[in-house]
């Protein structure tokens, strides 16, 4: 097994690197003045990143298809959100759909 020292160093390096990523964005941003158009593009970029996270985490697991239950749950949640259902309903319905399908033996 890996020695505790290696694990601590690895964790701290991962944490420091992650923090560097997190700090770099706002630091870069404070150095440049963005036009309204650029501000808009930044907001779009964040939406695109989040949407890509939704798609990849809903459909894929380790680069492979994630099965049926999870995408079905996300789809039900998405449909409810689109129909302006309350957020709580969206989240619980997504979880319940996936859990229910798995209970029935759907992967």
């Amino acid at each position: 097994m890996i020695s505790p020292l290696v694990l601590v160093v690895a964790t701290v390096v991962l944490g420091a690197g992650t923090f560097a990523f997190r700090v770099a964005g706002p630091a870069l941003r404070s150095r440049v003045t963005l036009s309204d158009r650029a501000e808009q593009l930044m907001a779009t970029a964040a939406v695109v990143l989040l949407a890509a996270l939704v798609a990849t985490s809903a459909l894929l697991e380790d680069g492979d298809f994630a099965g049926v239950a999870r995408p079905a749950g996300v789809a039900v949640g998405g449909l409810l959100a689109w129909r302006k259902a309350p957020f709580v309903v969206v989240v619980l319905a997504a979880a319940a759909t996936a859990a229910g399908l798995r209970l029935l033996g759907v992967p």
Binding site: T18, F21, R22, V23, G25, L28, R29, A43, A46, L49
Partner: peptide, 8 residues
């Protein structure tokens, strides 16, 4: 992804 997030 946190870098572009932070920029946004």
């Amino acid at each position: 992804r946190h870098l572009p997030f932070g920029f946004a």
